[in-house]
């Protein structure tokens, strides 16, 4: 009886899930494997092999990878520094990192457009200082730059969390058993933060791979990611079948990379030496 009541509490969420997650996925699957007439086809899915789609997918992968690597390279040392700070300052610094997330995603991208444009804030500043201006707007560099800015907290937080969970006496025990700083880092800290690193990678890589707003606003139509191709299929060509087919392929790629990361994580957990 009590159990039933508790299950009823999940009701609103189940409805939400069915309506806004399950149903859309079924619809995407339906559109992906049918023609406009409703006949079964593989054409929408296999159209990923068209050179323009393949190019967009490759570029998406490349930029997402670069973005993830930069985020990781920035976050890991930062998390270590953060972890060694006094508890009070830690809270404040974490707050600073989360602060940008309180602003709307689109606003932040638009702000970067203002900052980076030819007569924008950064270039005017460089100009007054007599330095050469930077012309990265509407290039993949600007897209990566903004993605790193947007997704960095998603990398820092899980890594910082996993690092903060390492008990001080584990480090002391390693030192006690003769380990120097390098050994402690590679044999204790890295393996114990691997779960944080992996969730960080997934949380940065997946949105970076599927992103279209950043490339739209900062790429100036010149940087075509797979997300943009899908958006165009839906919004400009009104070809829901093609858009769904490409979405389906992207979903497969996302699930595959997540599965790959997770299995790597399990390996890392077990075989340290």
């Amino acid at each position: 009886m009590c159990n039933l009541k508790r299950q009823l509490l999940a009701g609103p969420y189940v409805l939400w899930m069915a309506g806004f997650i399950l149903l859309p996925v079924i619809m995407i699957l339906y559109y992906a494997f049918t023609t406009t007439g409703g006949d079964f086809t593989f054409l929408n899915v296999s159209s990923i092999t068209f050179s323009v789609h393949l190019k967009a997918l490759t570029l998406s992968f490349k930029l997402a990878l670069i973005c993830t690597v930069i985020c990781l390279a920035l976050s890991y040392p930062l998390a270590m520094i953060l972890n060694n700070m006094k508890a009070k300052s830690q809270g404040f610094v974490v707050f600073i990192f989360i602060l940008p997330m309180w602003m709307n995603f689109m606003l932040r991208i638009l702000a970067w457009r203002m900052l980076l444009s030819n007569n924008g804030v950064i270039n005017s500043l460089l100009d007054t200082l007599g330095l050469p201006g930077i012309d990265i707007l509407n290039t993949p560099t600007a897209v990566v730059f903004c993605m790193v800015y947007d997704f960095l907290p998603f990398m820092i937080l899980p890594i910082y969390n996993s690092m903060a969970r390492i008990q001080a006496d584990i480090i002391e025990a390693a030192r006690d058993l003769g380990a120097g700083n390098l050994t402690i880092f590679f044999k204790i800290i890295v393996p114990l933060t691997m779960s944080g690193v992996i969730s960080g990678i997934i949380m940065v890589f997946v949105p970076a791979l599927t992103s279209f707003a950043v490339s739209d606003l900062l790429g100036g139509g010149k940087v075509l990611l797979i997300g943009n191709v899908i958006e165009q299929a839906f919004m400009q060509e009104y070809n829901w079948n093609l858009g769904s087919g490409l979405s389906f392929v992207l979903m497969i790629f996302v699930i595959a990379s997540m599965a790959l990361m997770n299995s790597r994580g399990e390996e890392n957990g077990a075989g340290v030496w």
Partner: peptide, 17 residues
């Protein structure tokens, strides 16, 4: 790490991984 002694900690401090 350079002392010829070893410690047993109260909460064991085993390496969980």
């Amino acid at each position: 790490n350079q002392r010829q002694l070893n410690t047993v900690f109260q909460k064991y401090a085993l390496f969980p991984h």
